[in-house]
Simulated assay, not measured.
Amino acid sequence: MENKTSKYFKYAIGEIILVVIGILIALQINNWNESRNTNNLSITYLNTIKKDLIADTTTFEAGISRFKKSLIVQDDILNIEKVNTLPIDSLFKVIAIETVFHSARIYQINNSTFSKLTNSGFVESKNFNDIFIDINEYYTEEYNTWLEYLEWDKENGMNPNKPEYLLGLYEKIDFLQFEKKTNTKSNQSINKEYELVFREYLKSTYFRNGAWNTNKQMKTMLERMKHQKNVASEMIEKINTELNK
C-alpha cells in the first residue's frame, strides 16, 4: 500500500509538473504571437506614416515653389520704376486676378495615421520604441508649431482682392470693364484715366506698406516651409533606417 501510495503521489506530482510546463509553454507561445503581431503592426504603421511624410514633402515642395515665384513678382510690384513701365494688363492680373499676396493655409501636415494610432491606444513594439518617440515629437512639436505659423499668417496677411484694400479705387474704376479690357489681346482701349489711377494706387504708401509687410511675412513662411520639408525628409530617412535593420 505504501508503495502504491508513493507511486500515485509521484505520478500526481509529475502530472502537475507537466500541466504547469504546458501552461508556461502556451503562455510563451502566446507572448511570441503577440510580440510578432505587435511588431508587424508597428511595421505597418511605420510604412503608412512614411507615406504621410512623403505627402508632406510634396505639399511643402509645392508651397516653396509657389512662394518663390510670388516673391519674385512682388519684387517687381514693389519696384516703382517697373510699376511705371510694366504693361497695365500684367499689373492688373497680378493684383486683381492672379494675386501673388497669398497665405500658406492650403499647405497642411497630414497627421491622419498618427491620430488613428494614438486614438487606438496602440503600444509599439519594443524594437521600434525609439523611432516612435521621434514620430511622436514630430506630430506634436512640429505639427503644432506649423499650425501656429498658419494662424499668424492668417491674421496678418494681406489680400489685395479684399474690398477694404481696393476701397480707394472703387469710386474711380469700373473693375468689371477694366478686367474685360485687360483680357483682350490689345490693351489700348483701356481708359487712360483708369490706367493712371491704378498705377498710382500701386505706388501709394497705403498699398506699398501693406505689400511690404506681407512680403516680409511670406519670406518668413517660405523659410518655415523649407524647415518643415527638411524635418519630414529627415523623419523618412529615420523610418527607412529602422525598417531596414
Rank of each mutant, 00 (worst) to 15 (best):
E124S: 09
Q188G: 01
K4S: 06
T182V: 14
E61R: 09
F207D: 02
K93E: 13
T48D: 12
E242H: 14
V197R: 02
L176W: 04
S189N: 06
V19Y: 01
D76W: 05
K126V: 01
K180R: 10
T85P: 00
N144R: 06
I13R: 02
N187A: 06
V94Q: 09
L27T: 10
K4W: 03
E15N: 08
S112L: 11
A12F: 08
M221R: 09
K219I: 04
D174F: 07
I29V: 13
K229S: 14
F178G: 07
I13L: 15
I77V: 11
I95H: 02
T113W: 03
S65N: 11
M221H: 08
Y45C: 05
N240E: 15
F67I: 06
G168T: 15
K238F: 08
S103A: 11
V100I: 13
D89G: 01
R36E: 11
N47G: 01
G14A: 06
K229F: 14
K126F: 06
N111R: 10
N209S: 13
A26W: 04
Q188Y: 05
Q228W: 02
T58G: 07
E81Y: 02
T85V: 05
T59P: 01
F67K: 01
Q228A: 15
D153M: 06
A232H: 09
Y11A: 01
L27A: 11
I131T: 12
K50N: 07
T5V: 05
I77A: 00
Y170P: 00
L176Y: 13
E15F: 10
K238C: 07
V20M: 12
Q217P: 05
T85M: 02
K82Y: 07
T5N: 09
I133N: 08
E242P: 00
E81R: 06
I109Y: 13
L202P: 10
R66K: 12
P87V: 02
Q28D: 11
E195M: 01
E234M: 13
I173S: 12
I49S: 03
K180D: 11
I21T: 14
I25A: 14
W212K: 15
L78Q: 06
E179V: 05
L27S: 09
L117E: 02
V231N: 13
N144Q: 12
I190K: 02
D130T: 08
T48M: 12
L222Y: 15
T214Q: 03
K172V: 14
S90P: 00
N144M: 14
L167D: 11
E141V: 11
Y201N: 09
N110I: 12
F178A: 08
S42Y: 05
N3Y: 08
L196M: 10
R199S: 08
L150E: 15
D174C: 06
L27Q: 06
V94G: 02
Y170N: 13
